[in-house]
Amino acid sequence: MPLIVLLVLVVGGIAGIAVLLHIIGLSKAKVFDQESARAAWLREWPQAPVQDIDLSQDHCVALIQSTHGPGLVWAMGADSAARLAKAVKISQHERGLFVSLNSFDAPRIKANLSPQQVNTWRGVLMEPEQ
């Protein structure tokens, strides 16, 4: 197959499928409630039971306090990812916090938070390790 034909097929195919998926509503991010956030955490960290959960304003991110320390659960498209929050870097944006995890495979999370939550999350995430 000529390279140019292959290129057109691949680029056109990816773009076409992306547009189709978006149009039929398959781009919505997962939103959590307390139970689904707990389940998403335990799916990845079953050995670190949950002590407390605080959901972001849009329910796409949750701050987890676990027996192994603080962590985050966040929406990855229709699914989720979860990490213990160790040695994180925090910066502020208009509606909340960016949390950088110092991890190549989970670099940065954007959490939309109330002003009160900004202080709470900052305090929990920046707390020195015990």
Binding site: I14, I17, H22, L26, S27, G77, A78
Partner: peptide
Amino acid sequence: IVAIVLELSWIVIRQRGGRYETRDAVTSL
């Protein structure tokens, strides 16, 4: 490409047989 569109159509019409999500699918492609 055709098979992906057919599978997606099947899932959307029958409401079973799998799941698709835009960013996940685009990353895979």
